[in-house]
Design a protein around this nucleic acid. Structure first.
Lengths: 247, 247
DNA sequence: AAGTGGTCTAGACCACAGG
DNA sequence: CTGTGGTCTAGACCACTTC
């Protein structure tokens, strides 16, 4: 990554120092950094310079800021060697633009699976919007590309625009209809045996290889607001990405 | 997309205006925007606010700035919205530096598979270093995490440092020993049935779900110099990534 | 009401690239 | 050398969250 080694500027030096202190345990994950004004006094710089330094950590994903709250430590490391995903969203856009989501079932209820509930930070009694969908390429006669199970935060359970022709990512519908802002996506890919139900919907044998893509969408407050679990027949889907080294 | 729609602030409004003007052809690609000082007069704001506005366009990849030169228009539409901050390999234990590669077989020969040869740009007669490996978590008694087939460009077929305890990525060994520089990685993930040979090495049933990760490493001259094809038991491995929005 | 980060001003000096 | 963007100061007010 753009290691903070070339620190000719004040704010870069301070960013490096703060990062070291965070990694040294001075500010544990999920706690707040001191206010900008206090830090600027500590380091003997103006608030502007202090903000630039913290801005570096924000860009690295180490901390997040929120007006009225403070600067929260998210993680202690950014172990990435390569950065900058080329055409990542373009791919996604193409993908969603040329396919359409069809909702098979829509319900508003508690999340039964305790693992998923924990992952979403759902508390007992919260009613989340849950959708069962299949995604098809243009031709509705062809077998679907994948099955997708969606979990949406109660605040967005009135989400509309899903009626058959949703050609845009669900997270962008949320952003548009509720003014929510997604700042982070966590993606997990794994291979597993195709479950019986999905096998039936997708027209492949139960137990055949399936690529499962889980995407967790996080807002500015570091809250999970959407989880999508997509199951693809291994024979029909490949996940491609290109990474470039950050100069 | 990259809608700058929530523009309550001055600099966001100005960024939107500038973007519209760029898209309208007022500032063609590869030309310079007026200097910050001039723009700040035009818009009637301080240079700081003007810089923030231009900073938005920089973060969107629309323009780039260079001291002593100016602000150059790169493109008229945004390319990428998310950038990757973390790419880690999750298995039951943590992958970080706690796994080691073991070479089962090493040969220098032509590439038989025409698809792979084409992918690597290998010409007939070229002898590539080909390695069959397994990767294990610390404990050598446990079953391996994955099987990896490596193809390395003839220029690097004398590659060393693979003797049993290679705890670093192979591409970084190449960079170190030959001064080569990797600038791009193309990654493909797919699910398939576990082949018989790999099944035996990994201790799982043939035909069970496998996650196949192919990584193609490209140098500065846009030449493929390494290809790694890793086959993981679906039950033992998960591929995780985190993306952050850049603005 | 108090305190946080978000925005903004009007200056200043510096590092860098070009002629 | 001139002019560019890069950094920095010392103030100010605002929007927001929490109590």
């Amino acid at each position: 990554m753009a290691s903070l080694t070339a620190q000719r500027s004040r704010y870069m030096q301070i960013a490096q120092t703060l990062l070291s202190e965070i990694q040294g345990g001075a500010y544990p994950v999920d706690t707040l950094l001191p206010p900008e004004t206090e830090l600027s006094v500590q380091f003997g710089v103006s608030r502007f310079t202090m903000r630039e330094a913290i801005g570096q950590l924000v860009r690295m994903g180490i901390v997040s800021r929120q007006a009225g709250v403070g600067t929260t430590v998210l993680r202690t490391r950014t172990a990435h060697v390569f950065r900058q995903v080329i055409d990542r969203l373009d791919d996604l856009q193409h993908y969603t633009a040329e396919t359409q989501l069809r909702v098979l079932n829509r319900s508003v209820e508690e999340i039964r699976d305790p693992v998923i509930a924990a992952c979403l930070g759902a508390t007992p009694g919260q009613l989340w919007l849950q959708l069962d969908c299949v995604r098809r390429a243009g031709d509705p006669d062809l077998a679907p590309i994948c099955h997708t199970r969606l979990y949406l935060h109660p605040a967005f359970r009135s989400l509309g625009g899903l009626g058959g022709h949703a050609r845009r990512p669900v997270f962008s519908l949320i952003e548009e209809q509720f003014g929510e802002r997604i700042v982070e996506v966590r993606q997990h890919l794994s291979a597993s045996a195709m479950p019986r139900r999905q096998a039936g919907l997708l027209g492949v044998p139960a137990g055949s290889a399936a690529l499962v893509v889980e995407r967790l969408y996080i807002n500015q407050r570091n809250e999970a607001i959407e989880l999508a679990i997509s199951t693809h027949p291994g024979s029909r889907y490949q996940h491609s990405q290109t990474f470039r080294r950050d100069y």
